[in-house]
């Protein structure tokens, strides 16, 4: 579904991604972790071309991201993305947040888009908030709306960029629950997250990044099973985040 092939990216002279290659198969859930500044958010943003890269290619469901002939908006409309800071549109109601791209990008009728949006809102347990504005919801609620907004486009794959990092601890689980449910339904997912509990529960593979490179890329059982077999850098990272 996603194949990342030798991607290199520079900010001026500074290389942020070095020879990154990996693959996410249909129905697979891949968790990307690593210390901050390791390039994991940058990598996931390269998948839907929110971040450009200079070398290599990424192919999403048969479409090349690097190909200059690719219609990027069209590609992005099939790739759902959830951001660290939710990025709901504050000037629009929850319903409008859920329907605007369906109407303007996919050309669905307002009635059809609203029906779809409300159904997804119910699925994330927020049907009573349809008429509100994002500012009136808690962080966890906003992030659930953001997930519903992405799902409303019927994406072939979902990208999550640290979806719980900006949340109060007590709100993390309500968002993770939605993500677990999604994973169990067979959605193809690539998640940048530090939630190792989530990774243990639903991930098929775990990717560990450091300094712009993919250091580990292995099945979950392997990644968590035998920590001593991991690279030194990954061991340090795991020691820091798993002791809690």
């Amino acid at each position: 579904m996603i194949s990342i092939d030798n991607v290199n990216k520079w900010y001026a002279d500074f290389q942020v991604l070095t020879n990154c290659s990996t693959e996410v198969k249909k129905g697979e859930v891949v968790v990307v972790c690593g210390p901050s500044g390791s390039g994991k958010s940058t990598l996931i943003k390269c998948v839907n071309a929110l971040e450009p890269f200079q070398q290599g290619d990424i192919v999403v469901d048969g479409t090349s991201v690097a190909d200059s002939k690719t219609n990027l908006p069209k590609l992005r409309s099939r790739v759902g993305m959830v951001f660290q800071h939710f990025e709901l549109f504050p000037h629009l109601s929850i319903t409008e947040n859920l329907t605007i791209a369906q109407i303007k990008v996919l050309g669905r009728s307002k009635a059809e888009a609203t029906e779809k949006g409300l159904k997804l809102l119910e699925r994330v347990g927020l049907q009573d908030h349809a008429h509100k504005h994002p500012g009136q919801l808690s962080g966890g609620q906003q992030q659930r709306v953001a997930i519903a907004r992405a799902l409303a486009m019927d994406p072939v794959v979902m990208l999550f960029d640290e979806p719980t990092s900006a949340l109060d601890p007590e709100m993390v689980n309500e968002v993770l629950d939605v993500m677990v449910q999604l994973a169990n339904e067979g959605m193809t997912m690539m998640c940048v997250t530090h939630e190792m509990g989530f990774a243990r529960k639903v991930a098929d593979r775990v990717i560990f990044m450091d300094a712009g490179q993919i250091v580990e890329d292995c099945p979950k059982e392997e990644f968590f099973g035998d920590v001593s077999a991991r690279s030194e850098r990954a061991q340090q990272f795991l020691a820091k985040i798993l002791q809690h």
Partner: peptide
């Protein structure tokens, strides 16, 4: 307007003019 808003609009498949007109300029 936070840069993330443009990212969110584009991630939903909006092109640049749509993102400006529907998301950035109203705010």
């Amino acid at each position: 307007i936070a840069k993330g808003q443009m990212g969110a609009a584009q991630a939903l498949g909006m092109n640049y003019p749509q993102s400006m007109r529907l998301i950035i300029l109203p705010q």
